[in-house]
Write a protein that binds this DNA or RNA. Sequence first.
DNA 1: AAAAATTTGTGCGTATGTATT
DNA 2: TAATACATACGCACAAATTTT
Lengths: 257, 257
Amino acid sequence: MPGTDDTNPASALYRGKGVTAWRLIADEIEADIAVLRLPPGEQLPTEAQLAARFGVNRHTVRRAIASLAERGLLKAAQGRGTFVENWPLSYPIGPRTRFSENVARERHQPGGELLRAEEIPATPVIAHALSIPAAAPVVAVSTRRFADGTPISCGIIHLPLPRFAGFAAAYRRNGAVTPALAACGVADYRRLETRIAARSASAEEAALLDLAPGRVVLAVTSINVDDNQVPIEFGNTAFAADRVELLVASDQAEFKP
Amino acid sequence: MPGTDDTNPASALYRGKGVTAWRLIADEIEADIAVLRLPPGEQLPTEAQLAARFGVNRHTVRRAIASLAERGLLKAAQGRGTFVENWPLSYPIGPRTRFSENVARERHQPGGELLRAEEIPATPVIAHALSIPAAAPVVAVSTRRFADGTPISCGIIHLPLPRFAGFAAAYRRNGAVTPALAACGVADYRRLETRIAARSASAEEAALLDLAPGRVVLAVTSINVDDNQVPIEFGNTAFAADRVELLVASDQAEFKP
DNA sequence: AAAAATTTGTGCGTATGTATT
DNA sequence: TAATACATACGCACAAATTTT
């Protein structure tokens, strides 16, 4: 364990195992972020100022910042400063997962955009997910979704034909899945399963989501079923991992805003 | 988006019905993978051989391979060949999430390793997650978990003291959380919430998980509670995204092997 | 447009306390 | 006890990126 210099004010608090100066500084900054005394987007004092305030060397402050940056709470930019990262949008996943509701719950303005729609024969995995014969016709709808104008996710959803022949047009009008499904006679639907993987964004995804190349996305595949347990939608969505975290709550009752 | 050259069959991707040569080839390979005619790890024929078999130019085969590689089904290695990727371990998340059960369900041998255990004062987020006062003592247990000997995840779990003073020793003996909690008098526990983010692996995570630098991890934070809804464990786990996918099933009843 | 100032990033050397051998 | 390895912390200097003058 590290050395403890009793003359150092920052190290005078606790003296347990593993309590080092840089850890104390990191905890203090973390607490400031947690209490919103350092709100998202806020610029921290410079490393030199923090070092002076805590009475330590600049390297020690840098060690604390590095620890918080690794956990995604801070982001240091050479020449500009160090900033508090935005809290990710919390996106609950459960039996009644709906994009627009999830975004609105966090007091953001949801939006959806239809990029492309085409009829294609189902590939093997699409056919399996929708429980239809291989190469049966489906409509593939490419979408991009927003919260307050910033892109959150993009992806392709597949729906069987001819039942959902009118889906694309309805989605284009509404910019949301639920009303578009309603236009096709689906009063209610349920999320059957959600698979979550992670990978680097493809070039197309990076362009659509306005991500720096190499940033990572949460790759989510989902199956929705209607009231009769018939699969109606197979989706393949990439969420910008910088802006969203997925939340699986076992208490599926309510999420207060 | 790429340019559109009508004389090039592969460039019809972004227009029309989407039934292009490379798509047909990709579907065929995908189907072979789906029915295990191309098992995980298998090497594909060379691009030249595939081009000859399908009667297309090698560029067309490359377009199909690129599409499947982007979805993680294939991996092309310059100079070596193209290989079928291993199917990721499917890791169900729900009210009764347990690592060892999840791994055993997929017919793999689970394992756990205690890397380090120390008593520390709770940071603000730990204290909030466990519903204890700030800076209250907790035990932080660093673990690494395996399936069939290959590392799957690493992370730190935090448990309040003095209730779980014996946890670390019990975990070291058993290599699993559930029996270690039982040793502390917790007969049963429930997953309260799970937050899923994604990011690049840190240097330490890359080393522990045997990942190439820059590969991505699923960063999962979880809270488990005992029968009285008292938080007993706050975990912060990084899953190697190459080797595991998280599965949220609304029908939480059963998963057949 | 160019120069200066500011801020983070990197490297080296030194010293000290902790843990292991 | 001694030797060794390691993590922490300090001090100085300079490089690289950005903003301001």
